[in-house]
Design a protein around this nucleic acid. Structure first.
Lengths: 204, 204
DNA sequence: TAACTTGCTTACCGGTCGGTCAGTTAAGTC
DNA sequence: GACTTAACTGACCGACCGGTAAGCAAGTTA
């Protein structure tokens, strides 16, 4: 111990959790390439080699963080949505809850693992990219099937279902780029606005 | 000349144009960080030092490419839109033409300078970022003012204008992520679909 | 107390990055 | 053919990257 920095030794799982958490925050704020393993190590308070005692590689780290983002989305939006029987209510649920999730994790200069799901695909290996894409496809299919059901019920406007599904997602994901928690609209309000606009554009 | 590669000497402006064009394509396809100056040099057919004879730095290169993307957007969408007197028609013009522009430059694995305007902000210096943000703000203000005019005319639904403007942009920008020229919808069709969905969500 | 495990450090590796510099070579001009 | 200009090369630089090997030191177990 040469300087005043705290030198607390942590248990393996504690340290691992801390590394993932710190790395997630840094990567979301500054980008994957702009965040070096030494940066992460310094922020955690140990050496780079110390980090590699717990983490196999930088790519695995990114994959784990993005998987965590997907886990969050599934837990907060996708799985609960499946419990909603009515198609229109299910769609409303998806829009508002996903919007809230994005808005909740937006800060002034950083994003959460839920939002970098989209941005850092280039850093992944082909195998990892394939896995995450598949999970995303499940989500898109959930939205599309809700739209198709509405179409079958004659409630949908005369629009292409695919274009509708992705336009919906675009509105929601774009939130991360402009929403500010200290703005004039609260998280709840902005989620409500997006739901209004989207449902107005889709339903007859 | 050691191998069979062509060794045509070009004039300064020709070479400069070629470098910008090749670099733009590569950076859009593979990302800014994943494209090294040596990669660009090799693709152009000269040495890295040769590239630096025409280009001051990598950051300037990125800024120039993104500025070009913004130029394109202004020429194809923003400036012509100002000539449309009716607010509703102006909004329709913006949506369809911006969508067409995005769709036109989407390929299977690459994007054009118009689409990376969004993705590679992190690679810019603060001063450059500020300049581009200001140009983007002008565009957002154009959309917002059209919406406000519609609101004053009582044609707009009861929605927040800011949320509406950004939702619109989200739908359009997201196109770059899912539209494929070989898909079942043509560029014109997809632009029309987005216009329908958006206008349906915004207008009474 | 001795053996073992494990959290962690110091020192280092090969490789690549953006960028520079001192020249070399081709083309244009007089 | 001499001179100038400008396109371009080859060799190199320091910095930093992701990742590793060997060993130390603190806690656990026998």
């Amino acid at each position: 111990m040469k300087n005043g920095k705290k030198q607390t030794r942590l248990s393996g799982s504690e340290r691992t959790d801390q590394i993932y958490s710190v790395a997630a925050q840094m990567i979301c704020e500054r980008g994957f390439d702009a965040t070096s393993m030494s940066d992460i190590a310094e922020a955690v308070g140990i050496t780079k080699a110390g980090v590699y005692h717990f983490i196999p590689s930088k790519k695995e780290l990114l994959f784990a963080i993005m998987s965590y983002g997907m886990d969050t989305l599934e837990a907060a939006v996708i799985n609960p949505a499946r419990e909603v029987a009515d198609a229109e209510q299910r769609l409303r649920f998806i829009i508002t809850n996903h919007s809230m999730l994005i808005a909740r994790s937006s800060t002034d200069d950083g994003h959460s693992p839920v939002t970098i799901l989209v941005e850092e695909e280039l850093g992944l290996s082909p195998a990892h990219r394939r896995k995450l894409r598949q999970r995303k496809r499940v989500y898109v299919d959930l939205i599309r099937s809700a739209l198709e059901q509405l179409q079958a019920d004659g409630k949908l406007k005369d629009i292409d279902v695919t274009a509708a599904a992705f336009s919906l997602l675009g509105m929601i994901m774009w939130l991360a780029r402009w929403f500010r928690p200290d703005g004039k609209l609260s998280r709840e309000q902005v989620a409500e606005e997006i739901c209004k606009i989207a449902m107005g554009g889709l339903l007859k």
